[in-house]
Amino acid sequence: MSNPFSMNGGAVVAMVGKDCVAIGCDLRLGMQALTVSNNFPKIFSYGDAYLGLTGLATDVTTMSELFRYKVNMYRLREERDIEPETMANLVSSTLYERRFGPYFVSPVIAGINQRTGKPFICGFDSIGCIDFAKDFIVSGTASDQLFGTCESLWEPDLEPEDLFETCAQALLNAVDRDALSGWGAHVYVITKDKIIKRLLKGRQD
């Protein structure tokens, strides 16, 4: 059995740029060392907020579906999309509800607030403690490697295209040094009026 956070593997990273944010994930789903699927994306979109989930695969799916339900209910009540900051508090309180029997996930949120136009990213531990960051957030089995690549490649005020390249290189090079992550990647670059999703081919080993 071992650690539920590292049974299936996976990595997510989010970065802030100049009036833009990027969020990326790998595509592997494994059982310990055996790779079961190389098409298991870990980023889910909820209107203006993008949610990345790493950890136990079953909880990744459960949480993504739970938030789909919650965000749809929010949209019906409020007659508007959820803002990233609001989403962060929703995720936090949902996780803390399970304080003594947590979902084994490490969520990451990225998005641009449509009202203020401000980029927003944040991360969480599995019981909902929010980690607000001005630069980048990492999570998953390659988090050590991602800390290294992000800390040395990222710089403030990157334009969308440069932010994409930085995010993609940070992710790709990090997951190549983690046996439990990789097998391709998705990277979203989010600006106020455009979202670009790119599918990256990575090493298949």
Partner: peptide, 19 residues
């Protein structure tokens, strides 16, 4: 201690991995 942080950076910048 920090080799797991440094190695992927060096892969990228010295051996031009993923470039």
């Amino acid at each position: 201690a920090a080799s797991s942080l440094i190695v992927p950076f060096l892969d990228n910048q010295v051996e031009f991995k993923n470039q």
